[in-house]
Design a binder for these strands. Structure first.
Lengths: 246, 246
DNA sequence: CGACGTGTTGATTCCTGTCAATACTCGTGG
DNA sequence: CCACGAGTATTGACAGGAATCAACACGTCG
């Protein structure tokens, strides 16, 4: 929850998410206006950012790290409804309270904008609103994709689907056509279970099963090596079919 | 798929969804511009509006009736990812193809806009883009709400959740404090199953169970009477708590 | 009447949840 | 140094809820 003064001085042109976040389309003068209302916040892994129903007087972009959005029922059942990665946007303009619990799952840096001036900017500069609409539509597509995972996939397919998300995100960074990928899971087994609508025991069992079947190799508790990304995506039931070879 | 000439002439001021659709915030002159690019289409119950991957050269608002958005896996498993009711928006500006199968589940009237001119309007008139952002954020919230249903609720709770949606939508129209509601299901058992991530047999069984327990009464195949809306919402596990009496 | 679509109900299977025991890692402190 | 505990992960035994397979009811339409 503490300010980070050295980060507060950074200017946007050096920002690692400059070209992907809500500010992606902003002109230099618009960036200057954003810089005036922005400030950074850092959270340690495990810390809450906001609880559902809390008043939130800011909106923000994830700069680095990861956070989760979760819903909880009275009896304790929990469902993750969003996984926020760098450049993702948090908070809803035009609504004062947080809709979900927001928790940092790794060390987290967020670029925050005070809500009122941000809303004024949205009203006056189309570039921010435009980009936010585009990002929201993408999130809606992702949420709907996830509805298929939650509603129709088996436990094994769910695990493979989640691993695919991380693997594909990292393969973009890595070599173009290596079919093998390696990454660190940003989530605990429990968080994975919350995301997938499973219990942590089932997650653990299916991870072991995928390892036994050679689909993945575990490097310690968090490290995952995927020797064949196509195979993993087949296990996910996505029929990815990146290249229409047939 | 056929034009409906008599509807095509209607002007927007008499439109039943005038104040809730994407055009809700438009000024009279903006409405005039929309009228120039709009046309109506009607579909019979069961007809497809578009298949996933098809090119869609228009976006549209549902005027009356209902349509579903569904995703299908190669082996036939299906998951409904959206239920479109009057005033809901179909289609994604800035994308040429449909992302999901769109099917009319009742007789359906849509107010369509040719995509290119609509996108031009979005770029030039903030009122359309503003309203679309707001609607998209609402849909994202609804999708996330549904993720909890799909991931964590029991079959009985899922059914109760779906019935609650219809019941609450109709209670707004009806009397203020009657706790009883009556409505017609717009969906078949199979469509309900697709929405809830269940089989149609389980849907049928749980409907019977809710009837047996007095939570609902069935009037024929489609009619549903909810004698106590609070009880139904309790069954849904939502802990709605519309009034914080405690 | 018989065929078809839709819905209900029954018998059985099996996947996942539940409850429980056991490992592994990492700090802390005696 | 090792004992101890907390947190996380793995594995096993068992139970239960939903899927599957199957039969049957109901209404409509030819």
């Amino acid at each position: 929850m503490q300010m980070t003064p050295d980060l507060a001085k950074q200017d946007c042109s050096a920002c690692p998410i400059r070209h992907r976040a809500v500010c992606a389309r902003c002109e230099p003068d618009e960036l200057t206006r954003l810089e005036e209302i922005k400030f950074y916040r850092t959270y340690e892994a495990g810390q809450p950012v906001a609880w559902a129903g809390d008043k939130m007087d800011f909106v923000a972009s994830v700069v680095s790290g990861a956070a989760t959005l979760t819903q909880t029922m009275e009896d304790g059942r929990r469902q993750m409804v969003g996984l926020l990665l760098p450049s993702d946007f948090v908070g809803r303009p035009g609504r004062s309270g947080a809709s979900y619990d927001v928790v940092a799952v790794t060390d987290l840096v967020m670029c925050c904008f005070r809500k009122v001036p941000f809303e004024q900017m949205m009203a006056t500069t189309p570039h921010v609103a435009e980009r936010l609409l585009e990002m929201t539509l993408d999130e809606l597509d992702a949420a709907r994709e996830w509805m298929l995972v939650l509603g129709r996939k088996t436990a094994r397919e769910k695990i493979a689907s989640l691993l695919s998300i991380f693997a594909r995100r990292d393969v973009l960074v890595g070599a173009a056509h290596t079919r093998s990928v390696e990454f660190d899971l940003p989530l605990t087994r429990e968080a994975m279970a919350d995301y997938l609508g499973l219990t942590l025991e089932t997650v653990s069992r299916q991870m072991s099963a995928l390892k036994r079947d050679g689909v993945i190799t575990l490097k310690g508790k968090r490290g995952v090596l995927v020797p064949d990304l196509d195979l993993l995506m087949e296990e996910a039931g996505d029929d990815s079919d990146g290249g229409m070879l047939s």
